[in-house]
Structures are given as C-alpha cells and as structure tokens.
Design a protein around this nucleic acid. Structure first.
Lengths: 333, 333
DNA sequence: CTGTTAGCGCTTTCAC
DNA sequence: GTGAAAGCGCTAACAG
C-alpha cells in the first residue's frame, strides 16, 4: 500500500471550496474571507496536509532554493561564510543546496549546471579563482549570482568582500613599523586574483611607501594548509626574512610552529601576521596577530544581496566591501 | 522579453520524434534505436536543451536531493562529516540541502518539515540529542533517515558512529596506565546520550576495571567551546585532578592553554586526551593526544547507507560502527 | 471574495 | 522501438 499523499484537491473537497482558495490561504493571500480561511485551516490541520514544494516550484517558477558553490565546507574559512549564508537564507525562507567544488574548474561547471537544472532561484559562489568558463555560464543564465569572499576582476556579478589590498598593506605597515626590512609575503596561488593582485599589491604598496624595494625572493606561493606552513622553514630561513604576512591561518600557524620548534623566537626573532583571525590564531602559542575579517557577515550580506537580486529590487551597489580590523596578539612586537 | 526556456517538447518537434523518445534518451533508456538517439542528441546539443529537474521531480516523485540537518557547519567536527556526505552524494548523483539547526528542537522540527515539503528523497541527521518529537516525525514520514555521528538510543533509524564507549574507555585506560588516580571527565551536556551514556560509561568502565571509585566531582559538563575550556582552570585545580579525558577538541585545547598559561606543565603535571584528533590538536603546544575518528568516513558511509535505503535495497545492518584509533602526542606521558 | 481553467515540463503506462 | 495521452500537485490569470 503506497503512502497516500493528500493534495490541495483533497483539502478543497473536504472544505467545500476550490483549489484556488486553498492555495490562497496556504500562501497567505489576504483575499479570503476570515470564515473560509478558518474552515480551510481546520481541514488542513485535520488532514495534516503539507504543500508539495516541487509542484509549487514547477507552477510558480520559484523554488525558494539557492545554490551555494563552495570549495570545501571542511575549511573553516568557507564554513564560516556558509553559516552566514544559511542563516540569512533561512530568514528569507530559502534553503541552500550546498555543493563542494574543491576549486576545480570541471566540478564548478558541473555543479553549476545541476544547480541550474534544479531551477535554483539564485547562486552564491565561493572560490579563489573565477574561470572564464564559469563567468560565461553566469552571464548566459538569467539566474542571479553573488560572490562571497571571492573576487571577479571585472565586477560583472555582485560580490561581498573586504578590501584585501588595504588590509594586507596595513599588516605589512605594522611589520615595517617594528623595524623589519625583509618581510616575506606568503600566500596561496598567485594566479588567484585575491592573492596575486589584491594582496600582493597591498604588500608592494606598503613597501613602496617605506622605500623598501620589492624582492621577488620574499614571495612564497604555497598551498593553504598547515602542512605547507610546516614545510616552509628552510625557504624562509634562507630568504633572510625576519617577518611574514601570511594569507591563510593554517599556513601561518604551520610556519609559526616550525619556527618555534626550530628554536626561533616569535616575535623576538620573527614576526607573523595572518589574515583570518580564526580560532587557530588564538590556540597557537604565541597567539597570532591577524587581520580580522567579518566572515559570517560576508556570507550573510552576500545572501541578503542575493535576495534583493532575486526580487528584482533596485540595487545601489552590487560590489560590497565590508570593514576589516587588525587584532594584535603575541606574534608581533 | 522573457527568457525563452526550451522544453522537451521543442526537442521532440525539432527531432521529429515524440516527447517520450526524448525522455528516453535523456534518461539513458536502452529502448531507443541508435540512429534516433543520435538524432535526438544532436537536437539537444543544438538547442542547448537542459532538462528541468523540478518538472522531473514532480513527474517521477524523485528529486535526487537529500536533506542534511546539521547543528552548525562552522563547527569543524560536523563540517568534516558534511564533506563526506556531499562527496558520496555527488558520487550517486544526489545534491544536498544543508540546514543548520543549532541543535535546537524547534529549528530541527521546522527544517525537517521544509525538507519534507521539498520532497527530499532522504535525510541525514546530525545532532547531539534526538528529541522524541524529531523521532516522531521520522517514523511518521516514509522518507529514509540516517544519523551520522549521532546516536538514537532506540536504534529505530540507520546510523553511523564509532564506539564512543570503548574509545573513551581506552583513553581513560591510557591515563590510568601512566599512574593517574584522579581523572577528570570533561564533556558537553550529559543529557546527550553520546556523553551522558556512551562516554560516561566508558569512563566508568575503565575506572571500575582498575578499581578506582567513581567520583561525581570529577565530572565536568560544559559547552563545546574553546572559551569553556579556558574557563575550566579553577574548577579543575580544585578537583585535584591530574589528568582529563575530554569530549571535544576545542574544549581540550582551551583547557590545555589555560593550564600552561597558569604554569602547569603538560604532560608532566597534567595529562590530557581528547576525542576528535582535529587540526587543533596538532596546532596546540604541546600537541594533544587524541582518539581519532574517521569523520569524513562516518559522513560518507552514512550517505552510502542512505542511498541503499532510498533504493529500497536490503540492508544487513543499519547500525554501523566504524573503527577508531588513539593517536599519542605530547599531552600524555 | 471565490471558482474555473489552463498550464508548468517531465515521466510513465499502455498501445501499436 | 516509438508515440499518445494522462497525470504529478500546484499557481495564476481571468471571470464573476
């Protein structure tokens, strides 16, 4: 015996009204006489009727679902963004389909297509690198898109970020202020605009203002991982650097630990500033000075922006920059 | 001018076949002559036809999406499970709707209902505490459910976990072996069966085997957070404990840091073993000995089990226990 | 304020 | 191997 699903039609019959009326009360349409509304509500209650969102989606062309493309939920940076996204989504009665891409071009395209096939009302994209192919799909589809903690050099779609350039400049300034001349710039792939353009330029700008010449040998490109940080010891030592601006907390803490494990005193002999102010920076000993990013808010604001886009509201500015801070801890003098 | 969506009907017309045939080729039904298949495929390509998954879901009563209820994605423990879930989901062509519950009863019920309304094919539930109301909804709906890293005392639904009791016993044994007599048991809410039943019993079992009497004053119930760990100093000191088995890594590292910050030597004067072997345990100094749980696998296996349930395959055992380990690091002698 | 009537785009018998 | 036709459960004009 199959599960007997009860439909809007059953409710209509039992309440002696039309499907349209039932639909109206379910959707909170005010054009229903209180008495009929009450009657319908009672039948709905009695029959334990639950509207089928799929049918609703097909008929109305709105699924109240948004797609979220994320490199990796297990990464705390992106997970924090995701939490902000989901909270605001829930607030506006949307659900999120979460899909991991590993930042892989093929997977991104794949997932984007299945998201579109599922008729999501909008998409939040997170990723270090926005490929032309992905950009192409974005403009080809009429589905609104917002980037969260990710940059589109052309600003074609909405996005929410902090000013990575200025933040990195501030961090570098701080290191210069305490007397460092040879400051390492440690980041993820430089092909990612957020690293290779924004952050690197912030670093260069700071150096330039202090008349320190840029040295290619102080630029370190690596994976965003604790292990990569641990593996940096020799290269950093050989470079003669006495401080480092790091683009990722795991990386920074890895560097910190390998330095202290090798007997290098932080911050006395080497200073470190990192970028996300995650729990890792508090747990490490010494704790790590860091730029603080409003990660949850970036996600939340991105989702809020997306709701406006999905609603076809007028947007004053679709490239949103949120404020950042610099939290001094024990890895700097 | 509205976006002109092209449908299966357009393809059928252009290819001079029926909708049924197009549907067959789209769904890989073998009952299509190679020649017609080729012709249809060409038209699909030319028109850039994308099947509408919502319509498909309505007609077939399968949405190929599963709901995932998670306390908090920003928590690394659950995020790791979620990653395993999504990878296997993708492997089997499912998408996941991710919904945060904060472990709150009301939100869990809410989210469960909207997931059901969206006609998900299955549900993965994560949560410390499975309330009767949630259990009721589970059995009321015919949608298959699997718990990941979460316990149902009654084993009514499928679940994937490790043997928390034995794991905690092993950890406690280890501490007893190195001479500790007063061992603190630090966990989250004892009302959660995983803490109050499994873990606590593992702890008690270990004590009993070594003829150490159980002392209520050594049981510490707190939030799963770094801050809660930091706040534990006085209570732990006053208890006279010389070691602790901790149920959560953030908590453990907080305890570790407050101890060392107060000059207590770990492991010489105090030993700590924690439960999840997350990156936190490697970052901390000293690094923290920990039970290791196959978090990714728990998620992956849970999702795999769910695919079988959704397929109505015969299941030999729906309560799955995965192996754990004990990774010795520097917080124990 | 309420009912009628078309679909939304696809799957799925059931014939042929 | 292929087509015709009947829905899936709901929304959205359009009347009245």
């Amino acid at each position: 015996m199959e599960k007997q699903t009860i439909t809007i039609y059953d409710v209509a019959r039992e309440a002696s009204v039309s499907m349209a009326t039932v639909s109206r009360v379910v959707n909170g349409n005010p054009n229903v006489k209180p008495a009929t509304r009450k009657k319908v509500l009672e039948v709905i209650e009695r029959l334990d009727y639950r509207p089928n969102a799929v049918a609703r989606g097909l008929a109305s062309k709105r699924t109240t679902t948004v797609g979220v493309i994320i490199p990796d939920v297990a990464n705390t940076y992106f997970a924090s963004l995701a939490r902000g996204i989901d909270d605001v989504a829930t607030m506006y009665k949307y659900n999120i389909i979460l899909a991991n891409s590993d930042g892989d071009d093929k997977k991104e395209i794949n997932v984007l297509n299945t998201l579109l096939a599922k008729q999501v009302d909008g998409i939040i994209f997170m990723g270090h690198h926005l490929t032309d192919e992905v950009r192409g799909e974005f403009s080809r589809s009429k589905t609104p898109v917002v980037l969260a903690g990710s940059i589109d050099p052309d600003n074609q779609v909405g996005s929410v970020n902090i000013d990575y350039l200025e933040a990195t400049k501030d961090a570098t300034d701080e290191l210069i202020k305490s007397g460092n001349k040879k400051i390492a710039f440690v980041s993820g792939a430089l092909i990612d605009p957020i690293n290779g353009v924004s952050r690197l330029n912030g670093y260069k700008k700071s150096l330039a203002e202090s008349k320190i010449s840029f040295n290619e040998g102080l630029v370190f490109e690596c994976d965003y991982s604790y292990k990569a940080g641990l593996g940096l010891f020799d290269r950093i030592q050989n470079s003669g650097a006495t401080a480092a601006v790091v683009a990722d907390d795991e990386l920074a803490v890895g560097l910190l630990n390998t330095l202290t494990d090798h007997g290098v005193k932080v911050p006395e002999e080497f200073e470190i500033i990192t970028s996300n102010n995650s729990l890792y920076t508090d747990i490490a000993r010494p704790s790590v000075t860091s730029i603080s990013q409003p990660l949850y808010d970036i996600g939340a604001v991105a989702m809020r922006l997306l709701t406006k886009l999905m609603n076809k509201e007028e947007i004053d500015e679709k490239t949103i920059i949120l404020p950042y801070g610099l939290i001094k801890k024990d890895s700097t003098k």
